Structure formats: structure tokens, C-alpha cells
Computed example of a mutant assay.
Amino acid sequence: MTYKNNLDQTVFLVDSLRTIGYDVVIVNQPTYPENLVQQNPPIIDGGADYIERNAMAHVALYQALK
């Protein structure tokens, strides 16, 4: 996770945030098969899953971090 600053230098976002005192948490929402028993199960894209399920996953994460 990088960006270019005004001097056209590459800056690492996570390092910049940590330097100014922020904690950085990166959430991995993987792709996985819906059913492990089925021969060709539909694939679930964790980041594009139901918004309600993603919201509850984030709520649980924030409660665990708290």
C-alpha cells in the first residue's frame, strides 16, 4: 500500500500511519468454496459477500480489538 507524495516519492502508507501514532489493521476477506462436500460448489468472494455478513464480521473484529 503505497502512494506518491508531492515530491514524486513513493511513501508506504502503513509506515506513515504508524509513525504518526495510528494502529493499522489489515482485514483479509478471502475467496472460498460455499460447500466443501459438493463437487463444484459456488465460490464466495469474501469481500463481495453480503454486506450484512461483512458488517457483522467487522463488528466482531472491532470488539476483539477493543
Results as ranks from 00 to 15, higher is better:
A64T: 02
D23M: 04
Q39C: 02
G47P: 01
N28W: 03
L65I: 14
Q38P: 00
I26G: 02
A55N: 11
L61R: 01
R18H: 04
G47C: 11
N54A: 12
D23L: 07
H58V: 05
Q39N: 12
T2G: 06
V11N: 08
A55K: 06
I44W: 00
D15V: 01
D23Q: 11
N35F: 06
V59L: 10
L17D: 12
N35C: 07
P42E: 15
P30I: 13
D8K: 01
V11L: 07
V24H: 05
T31H: 07
R53N: 14
Q38V: 04
Y62P: 00
R53K: 15
L61P: 00
A55T: 11
L36P: 00
I43N: 10
I20M: 10
D15L: 09
T2K: 09
I20S: 10
I26L: 13
Q38T: 04
L36I: 00
Y3V: 11
M56R: 14
S16L: 07
M56K: 10
Y3I: 12
A57N: 02
D15R: 04
V14G: 06
K66E: 15
P41A: 12
N5P: 02
A64F: 11
V59G: 01
L7P: 00
V27G: 07
A48V: 00
V59A: 14
V25H: 11
V14R: 06
I26Q: 10
K4E: 15
L17V: 08
Y50D: 10
V24T: 00
T31K: 14
T2N: 10
Y50H: 09
Y3H: 07
I51S: 09
Y50K: 04
A55F: 13
I51Y: 02
Q38E: 14
G21A: 04
S16M: 05
Y3G: 08
L17Y: 06
D15T: 03
L7Q: 15
L65A: 08
Y50F: 12
S16Q: 07
K4Y: 13
P42V: 06
Q38C: 03
Q39L: 11
P30N: 14
I51L: 13
Y3Q: 08
E52D: 15
Q29R: 12
A55D: 12
T2R: 05
T31Q: 14
V11K: 11
P30A: 15
T10W: 04
Y22M: 14
D45Y: 07
L13W: 03
Y62H: 11
R53C: 05
D49K: 03
L36N: 02
V24K: 05
K4P: 01
L61F: 03
D8Q: 08
Q63V: 06
T19G: 07
P30Q: 15
K66S: 15
V27I: 13
R18N: 14
L61V: 01
G47Y: 07
N40C: 03
L17F: 09
E52Q: 10
N5Y: 12
Y32C: 05
D49P: 02
V25N: 06
